[in-house]
């Protein structure tokens, strides 16, 4: 019996956000928006969901006079991503 895929990560946009953050220390909201092609509103909602689940940390600050939001993956998020990829492998290559 295959394990169910984590529903929080099994969504196109949220998976893209976590995949970006898994290889870096932190990424800017503007960068994530550009890479995913999502709208600012939708991206905010999905980032909020990931933050509430403890998968990412969000820092809101300023760079000069411009507001800046940076996101970074937490240890919980990294573990969830790793488990997700492991389960995904079982789906694609069933034993």
């Amino acid at each position: 019996m295959l394990k169910p895929l984590n529903p929080l990560l099994h969504s196109e946009l949220r998976l893209a956000i976590v995949s970006i953050l898994v290889g870096v220390e932190e990424a800017d909201f503007v960068y994530i928006r550009k890479e995913t092609g999502a709208t600012a509103g939708n991206l905010s909602v999905q980032i909020d969901k990931l933050q509430k689940a403890g998968y990412i940390d969000v820092d809101k600050g300023f760079r000069g006079k411009m507001p800046r939001t940076t996101c970074r993956l937490t240890e919980v998020g990294r573990k969830a991503f790793s488990d997700y990829v492991e389960t995904l492998r079982e789906y694609i290559e069933p034993r």
Partner: peptide
Amino acid sequence: MREQQIDEHR
């Protein structure tokens, strides 16, 4: 990119 369910390959 939207908030939608996807298959394993995607």
